[in-house]
Every structure is written in structure tokens, then in C-alpha cells.
Simulated assay, not measured.
Amino acid sequence: MAKTSNINYPADYLPTPLQDGFGLTPISPLLRTQFTSGRARQRRLYKSTPTQAAVTWLFTEGESQLFEAWFSEGLTDGVSWFNMPLRTPLGLGDYVCRFTDIYDGPVLVGGKYWQFTATLELWERPVLPPGSTEFPDYIVNADIIDIAANREWPQS
């Protein structure tokens, strides 16, 4: 079941998190039972599990003020789920997220910017839809297909 939210990250006023140091950590959907023989039984316990994302922002002073106010008022101090554009291996897309705890910061960087770091919980792991592995060439060579299509096909 897909999660939705009517709260949006103020992307028109605040930048997306920095790509440097951005990382995704999926929560395991597996249940593993170790036997005394040394073997183990492993099975999928859940089909949909969250992913945690380590994020960092650099904000100007005004952006910092807006971010902290949005976190406090708009998200009820980080309790609420919200929609946010994030870059994953699937590309830039909107994901339903929430903060796992309050952010760290602000930390003054270079005498001009304020750095905030946090861990976000994405409702779903960013993976291709079921059935996508039937056409691995289209996945692995998507950039070649995109380049050829844009270079060779006329504009409409």
C-alpha cells in the first residue's frame, strides 16, 4: 500500500539535500533463522520496507529560518510524513518521507552557510516496479536509448 502525504517540502524556496555524502540504507525485509547444524533458513517477511536516507543541507540564513519553522510548524516537530524530491538510482523523484528524529545543526560553514544533517525515513524502498527485470537491456542501456532518441528523433 502506497503512503501519501498532503505536506510538501518547500522545494520552491529550499534546496534539495546535498549529493555529497547522501546515502540510502534499506531496512531488511528478511527473516533469518539459524539452525544448530550451521545452516540457516531465510525468507522474506515483508514485501514493503522503508529505507533510511542520510541527508545534509547547506542553507543561507533565510533558508535556515524557513527550514526550522517548516519543521516545527509544518511537520509538528518532525512527526508528520511529507513529500520531498530526492535523487536515488531511479533518478530525481518525489518520495514520501519523515524525519527519524530532530535534525543536527545548524552549524556555521564557511562563515556564510548553515549546515543541517538528518536521517529521513522513506516510506518505500526506491526500486523499479515488478516486471522490470524482464527487459534488462532497457534498464542497463537506458542512457544510450535516451541519447539516441533525443539526438535522432525530430522535435515535435
Rank of each mutant, 00 (worst) to 15 (best):
A2S: 05
T4G: 05
I7P: 04
N8Y: 13
A11T: 07
D12K: 07
D12Q: 11
Y13W: 05
L14T: 05
P15F: 05
P17W: 03
D20R: 08
G21Q: 08
L24T: 01
T25W: 08
P26C: 11
P26M: 10
I27H: 10
S28A: 14
S28L: 12
P29Q: 08
L30M: 15
T36W: 08
S37H: 10
G38R: 04
A40Y: 13
A40N: 09
R43E: 15
R44A: 11
K47T: 13
S48F: 14
P50I: 04
T51W: 07
A54E: 11
V55A: 00
T56H: 01
L58R: 12
T60K: 06
E61S: 15
F67C: 02
W70Y: 10
F71T: 08
S72Q: 15
S72D: 14
L75N: 01
G78E: 01
G78F: 01
G78K: 01
F82I: 01
F82L: 05
N83Q: 12
M84G: 02
M84W: 00
R87G: 02
R87F: 04
L90A: 06
G91M: 03
L92E: 10
Y95C: 03
C97I: 08
R98V: 03
F99S: 01
T100W: 03
D101F: 09
D101G: 14
I102Y: 14
Y103C: 07
G105N: 11
P106M: 09
P106L: 09
V107N: 12
K112T: 13
W114V: 06
A118Y: 02
T119E: 13
R125T: 15
L128D: 01
T133R: 00
P136W: 05
N141Y: 13
D143P: 02
I144A: 12
I144G: 00
I145C: 02
A148K: 11
A149E: 13
N150D: 09
